[in-house]
Design a protein around this nucleic acid. Sequence first.
DNA 1: TGATGGTTTGACCATTCGGGCAGAATAGAC
DNA 2: GTCTATTCTGCCCGAATGGTCAAACCATCA
Lengths: 219, 219
Amino acid sequence: MTEQTPNAPPAEDPPLSVGQRPQTRIQLRNTKAILEAALDVFSQYGFRGSTLDQIAQAAGLSKPNLLYYFPSKEAIHVALLSGLMEVWLAPLYALDADGDPRDEIMGYMRRKLEMSREMPRESRLFANEVLQGAPRFLDGIEGELKTLVDAKAAIIATWSQQGKIAAIDPYHLIFSIWSLTQHYADFDVQVRTILGPKRDSFAEAETFLETLFSRLLVP
Amino acid sequence: MTEQTPNAPPAEDPPLSVGQRPQTRIQLRNTKAILEAALDVFSQYGFRGSTLDQIAQAAGLSKPNLLYYFPSKEAIHVALLSGLMEVWLAPLYALDADGDPRDEIMGYMRRKLEMSREMPRESRLFANEVLQGAPRFLDGIEGELKTLVDAKAAIIATWSQQGKIAAIDPYHLIFSIWSLTQHYADFDVQVRTILGPKRDSFAEAETFLETLFSRLLVP
DNA sequence: TGATGGTTTGACCATTCGGGCAGAATAGAC
DNA sequence: GTCTATTCTGCCCGAATGGTCAAACCATCA
């Protein structure tokens, strides 16, 4: 429940004046509440499927009050996306070129699965956005994400060439980690329905993915 | 009042393949055009993100004319979903208990990947729906889908126990096939952006997934 | 050719939605 | 307590949106 997200409030979106205002306690509390509520709503209904009224109600504010802190619905969405970007990419940033190849990749997979379990809303938020062509997020994908993936893929490629892991395409390895881990968050309803209420999908997923990637990485 | 004419235009049946109503040529053509257009629109924008005007325009019809063939926006969506269900599940239906275990599973994976390549709109349609909690499709998931998966998982479990393939959870194996193949359709924008325009994501995916599942299945 | 029933449309409606605005309420410094 | 900048709200608006309906259109066949 407790969000310990180290996200800085949207530095690019000071509510009122153009000049950078020092955030008051109220501003901080409300922008936080708004982003939290928006995460709830956007991740469940997508951008167009969500309404300002929904978000306002979830945040315990009136609609005009919402618009006092953010200039538009889209601004909230963008603020959310970019604010969560670094959190979302942190596990991949942590992949260390100097670590043990197998451990690093398995660790990345584990952290990603952990994030799917702990932050399913964030996962669905990004999934919704990308699914619909990332109309408000292409910049992020083309920029920071691509840069990061390119860098880490290069590291993995080196490991491959050195025979420390199997000779597989590093990009598709990363894709496979994304898809397999996020699947349990994004398609949670489906997974749970098929597995039934008694099974712990994430616990089982961990075992399964451990096996899968162990076998995949063996040189 | 042509309110509930029993033999008239489709009130609730999938007009395409299943319906055996005495359909006019015009009815057939237009319902087909509507569902085709709706697939385009719904798969791109999700249910709430799509408008009747969009669908009508894509189908080359007027909005009232749309509503002459389908009673509501939701009816179109449901008709689409249920109409496509059998197509979507066909690859899994084809998994044969009497075939060679490895071939059957690898074949299923290949057919699924092929479907992601050939029918990305359908993939995104289901993805959108499930992502948002499958509000209009839970029946399908709880019913036909779960039944089918249970049946095929049992087959795979047998193969596992007989040592013909690795001892892995059959449900998660199926999930992994879904997630890895559909990822290339659902997150197409992301995949293409990261790989760049010159690389053929699906061709590479085939190679990669071939390796991945070969290694995973080995007893 | 005229009758008939399926097909199409323009005009319309109620609701919802994103957003604007003036002014009231309030917090915090003095 | 006063004052001021910040925060909040009631009320409004124009544009979309899902959906309705009576009338018009048109293909077909007796």
